[in-house]
Design a protein around this nucleic acid. Structure first.
Lengths: 336, 336
DNA sequence: GTTGGCACTCGCACAAACAGAGTGCCAGTC
DNA sequence: GACTGGCACTCTGTTTGTGCGAGTGCCAAC
């Protein structure tokens, strides 16, 4: 593809993103040193439109990028825009003094929303990549237990359990068994060992033990129920005009964890993925894009975080911010 | 105050709530059996406006209620509208099969949002009214502990703690002490007993113990950090027109836990409170109302739940729904 | 106290006219 | 062959003007 045509596309994308209005040939040459006349640009535009990278909302209006155009822009033209000094400083310091995992993720999502000026989403670290630290059994009432699972990333999972009857000694014994089987293991390992434990339990523990193990297995392998935090909702008001097409479907998606999870998708740490418009799996979200990245330690990916916004977003900046935050949080959580 | 004038006010409020348009004297007599002519109604309207209960957006438009008008309506005219059979059924069944506290509250907030068609908020049960069930200490790394507090309402509070060094035995001993001091006590009681414990710890536990007790005290008395769940955000799209005045400030409030807490205020169980327009503590939310109710057992109020929406909402229905849901959840949690 | 009538006031919807921005195409130039 | 200036054309958003309808306030009559 022609070099100048690419340059024109880049110019169109950046101008449209900043102005939100269709951009015409005249203003294009005025604002960018293309070294050619508007007429020439018009020819290039016609070609770009022919190939499906841009389109015009109506005859005799300027051009706006199509999803395909954005895609090309992101793939071939999008040098990540370096963060400002202030942003870098913010990212370096936003976690200092964080209390617990909840707090860390809350701060993360806020920061991400703030620097990108969009809606941010942070997934809780998934269990499968973390190591079981402790299993606790607590008696809530004569007929009710609470099983608690604590992992190396600080995540805590709880589940109630109905049980016919029990005494403290039995519970202590069971607790010891469960911990012996799981602590220090990753979730998949723990699952295997729990299954084995099930058949080797002393008779006195059979009743309660089986139920507890079943529940614990569920918890350990409950990847699907990945919790998440959302922030930056007020930024939605910046898209005032496109209420129906953008804001409404987005709010609906944000309400449904499952949808969100699917949207974020899976990404290994340090790799920023972009889903543009109809590339993403829900047709209601055709006019929104998702910029996501995995985060984690050098060896593991804990989970995913990202932002969601209108297709016409500032991809270079957003991608840079997402990557920077993901890296920092990953490192922070690995150390802790 | 004149009986008929009250009746006129009621008619104006209900009509305006359902149509969202200023209501005039003619349509008023057409839709309500007032038994008088439009001219008479006009006189009453003039009086009502004089007294500040209604106002007209511009000369020669119909009237709309003022906050004061809504207040009078709620106080003196608002017979709670009974729930539909479908709603009652929904409320009776929405909690069946709930897994844990998180799940219960999530379902609650969804239900509330659905039946009221507005944004719903549910506060987590506060610690002060619940009883400590268990305290757990988990070693996360050589220099790091995780303190976990479990209460009778199923709420779990966690906090990380930096510690110089420690071995398992010491921890076990400390755990025993902490549990002995707190289990079975309400938060305030536990706080007192923890303070006492602090001075009677064996020397071997002094170092770690002091730090742990300090942290635990914080957790036990951390009323302020009441967590909450929000749901029904998509309902915000129904106020499309009043973006700036209603939706934006609402989104901003929803992002800030502290603001939300203050908005919900405190209410004892089984008492529905309504804050209309500028009655609530944030001037940005002048055009929104909050309908809230405490929920809990017969003896205790656990926390508050409610909905937030535009001042022109259907108060009778909303209040009825909030009350019904609050009652049901309160009962459910008391039994569990 | 209530009612019918009437003059008056606005806001809003609709239409027509207009200005501006942008395009596509063509003929001329380097 | 690629680029440019010019020109006719198209379309939208805005402005301006007009008429309609809903609603009010007031007054005289019942």
């Amino acid at each position: 593809m022609d070099d100048r045509k690419l340059e024109v596309l880049r110019a169109i994308v950046t101008d449209f993103v900043s102005s939100q209005e269709p951009v015409g040939s005249r203003s294009l040459v005025e604002r960018h040193d293309l070294g050619v006349s508007p007429a020439t640009v018009r020819n290039d535009m016609a070609a770009l439109e022919e190939e499906g990278y841009i389109t015009q909302p109506h005859t005799s209006a300027g051009r706006i990028p199509t999803d395909k155009g954005y895609r090309l822009f992101v793939d071939r033209l999008g040098s990540l825009k370096p963060l400002s000094a202030a942003e870098q400083r913010a990212i370096q310091t936003f976690l200092s003094g964080a209390l617990d995992l909840d707090d860390i993720l809350l701060r993360t999502v806020r920061l991400l929303a703030q620097v990108t000026q969009q809606v941010a989403i942070v997934e809780y670290p998934t269990l499968s990549h973390s190591v079981v630290r402790h299993v606790e059994i607590v008696s809530m009432s004569p007929s009710r237990l609470l099983l608690i699972l604590i992992t190396s990333t600080g995540r805590i999972e709880q589940r109630a359990l109905e049980i016919p009857e029990h005494d403290e000694e039995t519970l202590a014994e069971l607790r010891a068994h469960l911990n012996a089987a799981t602590v220090g293991n990753t979730s998949p390992q723990a699952a295997v060992r729990l299954s084995k434990l099930s058949s080797t339990l002393p008779p006195s523990l059979q009743m309660i033990g089986q139920a507890a193990i079943a529940t614990l297995l569920e918890m350990v392998s409950s990847e699907a129920s990945g919790r998440m935090v959302v922030g930056g909702m007020p930024n939605l008001t910046r898209y005032g005009s496109e209420f129906e097409t953008t804001v409404k479907p987005m709010l609906e998606a944000l309400e449904e964890q499952v949808v969100l999870l699917k949207l974020l998708g899976e990404a290994s740490a340090d790799q920023v993925t972009v889903r543009i418009g109809q590339e993403n799996p829900y047709k209601e979200l055709q006019s929104t894009s998702v910029v996501a990245s995995g985060y984690g330690s050098q060896v593991d990916t804990f989970a995913t975080l990202g932002v969601i916004g209108p297709t016409r977003m500032d991809y270079p900046s957003t991608m840079a911010s997402v990557r920077a935050v993901a890296r920092y949080v990953g490192r922070f959580l690995s150390e802790g």
